[in-house]
């Protein structure tokens, strides 16, 4: 894995996994989830990247602006910034790997961003993991998580409308989020891997041509220090890609 910064002002953190063995000339971009979900999924996404690189794919993982190891504060970033970041990462992978074709794995709300990407760029294989295509669905999820926190913590929050499960967001975050509706993605192959408690199956079925249900827990609303590592999901995603 080669870590580097790219994008505007070299502000986005990237982890590039060079293809091993015989390169396929095919790039894989991993669009991880956002906020606390992204931190918890990092380990699993790294495993997917390692496995795909071992099979000859050039793989790029990255952190969105204001998240993970990228530069900036979370409260300064917007959803349109993150959409742009995804496009930058797609182009960066093509430049770094010289790949002829590219696929994308999009997790949770990154699915919404990836759909927009798919309408601008050519994607071979688009795989969703527990996707949230609708901004309102993600907002509901964030608010549900917030409600589960102890009241005493919430009493002293300086701006309850801007803090979501520990992350302090920009002023227009909610408005921007609810304006994000599902759209039809474009890719040669479209599939989704869903875990046991995933709620929006019908939406996914209307978007993806293949939907695989995995009988595994994936507690997206779990504790922020609990790393997610659903082996069955990782296997299923790798199978779909390779």
């Amino acid at each position: 894995m080669e870590p580097f910064y790219f994008g505007k002002n070299n502000s986005l953190f990237g982890a590039f996994h060079l293809a091993e063995g015989t390169p396929r000339g095919h790039g894989l971009l991993i669009a991880g989830p956002l906020l606390a979900e992204g931190i918890r999924a990092q380990f699993a996404l790294r495993q997917i990247a390692n496995r795909c690189a071992a099979l000859g794919y050039d793989v790029l993982r990255f952190d969105y602006a204001g998240l993970g190891n990228s530069v900036g504060k979370t409260c300064d970033a917007s959803i349109s910034d993150w959409t742009e970041n995804l496009c930058e990462a797609f182009d960066e992978l093509r430049n770094a790997a010289g790949s002829k074709t590219q696929s994308v794995v999009a997790v949770r709300f990154a699915a919404n961003l990836a759909v927009e990407l798919s309408r601008k760029k050519s994607i071979e294989n688009l795989v969703f993991w527990d996707p949230l295509f609708d901004g309102q669905h993600w907002l509901d999820h964030l608010r549900e998580g917030q409600r589960n926190l102890p009241e005493a913590w919430l009493d002293s929050v300086e701006d309850i409308d801007r803090e979501f499960m520990g992350h302090f967001m920009c002023t227009g975050f909610v408005d921007e989020l609810v304006s994000r509706h599902p759209a039809t993605p474009r890719a040669t192959q479209l599939s989704a891997v869903l875990t046991k408690d995933y709620k929006h199956v019908e939406t996914v079925q209307s978007v993806a041509t293949e939907v695989q249900r995995i009988d595994a827990d994936c507690l997206w609303q779990g504790i922020a220090s609990e790393v997610l590592y659903p082996v069955e999901v990782i296997n299923a995603i790798c199978d779909r890609l390779t």
Binding site: I39, R40, Q42, L67, G68, S225
Partner: peptide, 13 residues
């Protein structure tokens, strides 16, 4: 714990 160098809620950053 097992969380990356970023830390829970980016505490490390």
């Amino acid at each position: 714990g097992m969380v990356s160098n970023v830390g829970p809620f980016r505490l490390g950053v």
